[in-house]
Design a protein around this nucleic acid. Structure first.
Lengths: 339, 339
DNA sequence: TCATCTAATGATAGCGCTGTCATCGTAGCG
DNA sequence: CGCTACGATGACAGCGCTATCATTAGATGA
């Protein structure tokens, strides 16, 4: 590690004043090329790295981009984080996470904590902030991006897609493939899950195929095992259900395994569709249909929009809908002929 | 958000000097109870929260615990992170991540970046740091915990388990169940993977069942799809392989699906064992045997050890082996009778 | 040639907090 | 009753950096 090297030491070595070194580092175009060269050499020789705390104190703002997500284990969010990382790579920015555990009050709290650090930017999941949190965000003195979802009345910028429409498209797909008694499997009924359910319901109703009793949900967290339980419960009540739209891929995978256990043919007697299109879906047997959500891109774009704003470049449109695409696979090939 | 409230304003309101407020906040026992009460009231009334940057600058150390992990998407690490979060909950500490992408040079770099921030503590994955990184860690002026693995010569503290022994136990399990031609499937051959392979090999050799050609590995990242590819390749060369020890659960899951595709009975004609025991393993059909690694506990304990050290409490033993337990399930029930 | 302007650099002060030492008052003791 | 010891509080300086304004030197034009 060695001792901390300060600006002053670099300045002494380069034969200039500290403030000039500071400038050379932050706005290289404002110092003469030869001066800059001497400074760069001194920086390299001494291995100087600015102290982020001192910078934050002096400027009144940090280079931390605060990120508020509901869960750190959910594969969906980890993909977003990867994108974020990609988006801030090679920049001066850092990412700091807060996990809300799907709890609005926690989100509000964490928002306060982040805001005190005068973050460079803020990224929050979803559009369902509490009124208080919303007020904090509205007044935030930094770029804010809402991700995962699109909706009316953005705080600032927004990158996501319509969960309602994505689910609707998946449901249309099931119907187009010939399924006539579709059900819904959902866990952890957060607002995004509810909107997916609404999309499912809207399309099913329009087709005259909606049965309010043909859905099985739970407030407990989602998991593969849960998917199996939900399917079993649904089939116990409605053995004639011929397809399930699952709120996410874990549930879909669990449903597939449960179907195997029950000796139910997929897709012949039961169609299965997931949501998010994690890698495993394609590799399953039969390969599982899912809805591709562009999570990595979402994170990367959110980071880039914030960077663009902070670096004075054009961030592009403030509201980006990345859409979602049904990836049709064998698990929804359609009911067997002798349906 | 509102304006930032400073120590001085709190002090003015409480009728004391700023330094007393500072003390009241950090070491409440050093100020008189009534003074403290007045200060607490002022803090609450004004909604004061200390500025972390100013504190870091003044003390020369931050409250950030730096965490270096290879991947943010791998479920294994996200579980560790959850544990970490749990471990620092309700404390003044924050966690900041660096992703090394399994690249020692990146790790070395990030280590430098973290160290400049004078972190409160450092958590690094594994024991395979470069010599330079090792030197940095040895000289770090903060508690350091190596996680994921145990080994000789810890930098400071260590929480993990022996990958070699865990794999050895899994292999013994396969043999005990009657499998006689076990193979190995591995992707992303990082040091931990190699040690697992070594454990597999040691036990297989001791039993006279090791065939150096009966393993299929790749440097590419692990995934469910990859597991299928590896199994297919292995079986193409050695159709008589009767069990596979997979380097992780994704590969095992992929192997299971591939076996289905090939019409190979699991566990009758092929036993499958994974590693890590992710939730999905139990829910699969057949349920998949795996090796439980205590990831959440690992993260939580690492954080607690650092906290204990920083808060002057006894951190307990410096080297904790959390072990790993084979979770025997149907996928390794043993070869079919007519083997 | 001289005033005027611009680009490059420097001096000063201060961000909000804490380490260090000084000060003050009072309890305890001979 | 005077002195020491100690607990409680305060004054001061400074952490490393940058915002702001001042200064300097050279370029420009009438």
């Amino acid at each position: 590690m060695g001792r901390r090297v300060t600006l002053a030491e670099v300045a002494a070595r380069a034969g200039v004043s500290p403030i000039t070194v500071s400038r050379a580092l932050r706005r290289p175009d404002t110092v003469q090329p030869e001066t800059r060269a001497r400074i760069d050499a001194a920086v390299a020789a001494l291995g100087y790295v600015p102290d982020p705390a001192a910078r934050a104190l002096a400027t009144g703002r940090s280079d931390v981009i605060g990120v508020l997500i509901p869960s750190a284990t959910n594969a969906v969010f980890t993909d977003v984080l990867s994108g974020l990382y990609e988006g801030i790579a090679e920049s001066r920015f850092d990412v700091q996470y807060g996990i809300t555990r799907y709890d609005p009050a926690t989100e509000e709290n964490l928002l306060g904590v982040f805001l005190r650090q005068r973050p460079a930017g803020l990224i929050v999941a979803g559009i369902d902030q509490t009124p208080a949190a919303r007020r904090l965000l509205d007044r935030a003195a930094c770029p804010v991006v809402q991700i995962m979802e699109t909706g009316p009345d953005p705080v600032d910028m927004m990158v996501g897609f319509s969960h309602h429409d994505a689910a609707a498209e998946a449901t249309r797909h099931l119907i187009a493939r010939g399924y006539r008694r579709p059900g819904f499997l959902g866990a952890r009924m957060d607002p995004r899950t509810r909107r997916r359910f609404a999309g499912f319901r809207a399309v099913a109703e329009a087709a005259g195929l909606y049965d309010p009793d043909r859905s099985e949900t739970t407030e407990t967290p989602s998991s593969v095992g849960r998917g199996g339980e939900l399917l079993r419960a649904l089939l116990a009540r409605h053995p004639d259900t011929d397809a399930v739209f699952c709120n996410n891929d874990d549930l879909a995978m669990g449903a597939l395994f449960e179907a195997m256990r029950l000796g139910i043919a997929v897709p012949g007697r039961l169609g299965i569709c997931g949501f998010n299109d994690l890698e495993m879906m394609r590799a399953a047997e039969p390969p599982l249909t899912s809805v591709r959500t562009n999570r990595f891109e979402m994170g990367a774009l959110a980071a880039k929009m914030i960077r663009a704003r902070l670096e004075g470049r054009d961030p592009g449109p403030a509201l980006v809908d990345l859409g979602a695409q049904v990836q049709a696979r064998a698990s929804t090939a359609g009911p067997a002929a002798g349906d």
